[in-house]
Design a binder for these strands. Structure first.
Lengths: 115, 115
DNA sequence: CTAAGACCTGACGTTGACGTGAGGTGCAAC
DNA sequence: GTTGCACCTCACGTCAACGTCAGGTCTTAG
């Protein structure tokens, strides 16, 4: 598929897909005329990239772990990187849970004053 | 206390504290010579601000909900805002949990190849 | 064959939360 | 009274993940 279709299906902008390529996250083929041509699997890949971005991973980090998804094998350094990022995510979840509790407490304790 | 001490105690930079004031998040008194003077309660306030920043809230959003913490009362619009942000945080937690599961699965399923 | 989109490559603009000097003032110690 | 660190106010720099033109090419429908 071409870039517009992938963008629509993944719910991202065309610019974002070109940016992902610039970062080395995507490597689409090109038609003889130079237009980008993506396989169907690119959709899942983009969704996974977005998921990792949402988790606060930097594009460079994603670049180094995406090959694991492709190859299904982990080198020691990739495993270490994944473990670190997993720890970061778990810390984020814990911090967000504390923040949630605090906001709930704030909502519960504060009287709703009209006006 | 002065800005340097608050920064050290809260684990943030002096620049960050000045920035928070610029955003309206902090309103320290001034000595006659113009130096900022913070009450002890500013420490908790800064930690709370950082917690909200970490949860992805924008400074403007924090500005509008901090008065609730001070006053202990909520106007209807503030309650609505808090509810929205609470929902965002819960969505983030859910998304992060999914990402965590995916990374765990990736680590578990991929064989660790030496070299 | 031509007009309208979809696509291309630069390349500069945006936003938020600060970092980083530059140049000057306050304050405590000696 | 001067050294030296903490503090002050501008004000420009940074970084990531794109947005947004500008100016040109490809593709497809009629």
């Amino acid at each position: 598929m071409r870039i517009g279709e992938l963008a629509a299906r993944a719910g991202v902008s065309v610019r974002a897909l070109r940016y992902y390529e610039e970062c080395g996250l995507l490597r689409p083929d090109r038609t003889p005329a130079g237009q980008r041509e993506y396989p169907d699997s690119a959709l899942d890949r983009v969704l996974f990239i977005r998921q990792l971005f949402a988790a606060g991973l930097a594009s460079r980090t994603i670049v180094s772990i995406l090959p694991c998804v492709d190859s299904g094998s982990l080198r020691a350094d990739q495993l270490a990187l994944l473990t670190v990022e997993l720890g970061n995510i778990e810390n984020q979840i814990a911090a967000l849970s504390r923040t949630r509790e605090r906001l709930v407490a704030l909502i519960d304790s504060a009287a709703v004053s009209a006006g």
